[in-house]
Design a protein around this nucleic acid. Structure first.
Lengths: 228, 228
DNA sequence: GCAATAGTGTCTTTGAGACACTATGGG
DNA sequence: CCCATAGTGTCTCAAAGACACTATTGC
């Protein structure tokens, strides 16, 4: 077939899966939709791409800034997947490129929302995807969310940067281990995990920075992950 | 139900990075553009999404069928990334979702092309991205190609299915090893690599099927990867 | 026999996991 | 002293890498 230009066009949005850890629990940012379709239903934050002036990364970052008011220099953002089922949006064929973001613990804060939402909040991931029913989400957002969880789980073991992005700038061995436990939903033997941690220190991938910190037991050393 | 939305829309295409191994060399399918922009320049095959009736996977598969006339049941296809720089296409803001495909050696064949191309052929990957200059590609297709190579390299060690998708239905230990060598661009010690291979046989991930095959030296056993 | 390709055995090192242990702080 | 948390040592096993070796075919 021969292509005459222009061609039919599609709406394009980004959806954002923002993760953060608070109180030892993995949370995800959701908004409550103000308008149809899916009025009153919880959904991932997202919005339409500004055609001609921004790329999808820019669109996702803009959405995240509107939502969190954060400086994104210390936030990890990565494209996840593009969802394009013609029936995924009842308004028509809307293609959506999903991103996920990891918010460091020391930047965690309350969420804002704009006119298209009537509420926005951090929700425990387990309560959203919960085995015991969970929470209905708009569009195909449950699928996007589970894809994002799978991606983060698949990467955290191999890329220290992922764990770093959920931790405060300085952290202890135990906090580093707990991030892995929370994300993977399993327990690790502290001894064996710390051996791995010490190797990363020897390799220069993690550096000891501060000395101690007040807790109820023995004081812990503080570390920082080197970017490289 | 229908809702009207005032948002501007974008063109959406898929671009396809099709890999195959022939004569122990990794090749990629390219077409020569017949029309502007980039008239006469080599490019990845691709095409516009049919809005409202197909999703991106379907669009990529359609392109691949047009190009190769293959039954895609034995072809591995995976979404790679979505490229959205507003200036990546001089015609306007065209968003492109790239896919990569792995063609089994026993399905390798000549390429067809449709009206938007004046030629189509398999090109040695090394000649395209070559350290010694390489080949100019249209749009951001060089970036897409190198991203695809990186993805395949990153996955082949962990997912036997990737190697399988480049091999014929039945293959020898040496062929399995050579696929890894060709994709990664390195040599592996046959002894150590074969140990790993034998482990996969013990685990039932690979099954011995045929017995022998004619060559100039000792005859080799034939194997098949189990899907699982 | 010889060339060519297929396939094995052994040693060393590295890292994962199980599990018992020591160290240092506050009260 | 006791509790709580931080952190270590040792044993075993699985797998990777270096490298010397044996096996089976055609001619």
């Amino acid at each position: 077939m021969s292509y005459t230009y222009p061609y039919p066009k599609a709406d394009h949005t980004t959806d954002l899966v923002a993760f953060a850890i608070e109180n030892m629990v993995l949370k995800v940012a959701l908004i409550k939709r103000r308008d149809d379709p899916f009025k009153g239903v919880w959904a991932l934050p997202g919005g339409f791409l500004n055609i001609g002036t921004e790329d999808l990364d820019g669109c996702a970052r803009r959405e995240l800034i509107e939502e969190t008011s954060l400086d994104l220099n210390n936030v990890y953002i990565e494209q996840l997947y593009t969802y394009s089922d013609p029936t995924r949006d009842p308004r028509g064929h809307v293609i959506s490129t999903a991103y996920y973001a990891l918010i460091p613990a020391d930047l965690f804060g309350t969420l804002k929302h704009n006119d298209d939402a009537e509420d926005a909040k951090w929700v425990n991931l387990a309560d959203v995807i919960g085995e015991t029913g969970g929470m209905p989400l708009a569009f195909d957002h449950m699928r996007i969310l589970t894809d994002a969880v799978e991606r983060v789980r698949g990467k955290i073991d191999y890329f220290p940067r992922i764990a770093m992005s959920l931790l405060p700038k300085q952290f202890t061995q135990a906090e580093f281990r707990r991030v892995h436990e929370i994300v993977n939903g399993v327990k690790f033997d502290p001894s064996n995990f710390n051996k791995r941690f010490r190797r990363m220190v020897s390799d220069g991938r993690i550096t000891k920075t501060g000395e101690q910190r007040a807790t109820s037991g023995r004081h812990a050393s503080l570390y920082r992950i080197e970017d490289a």
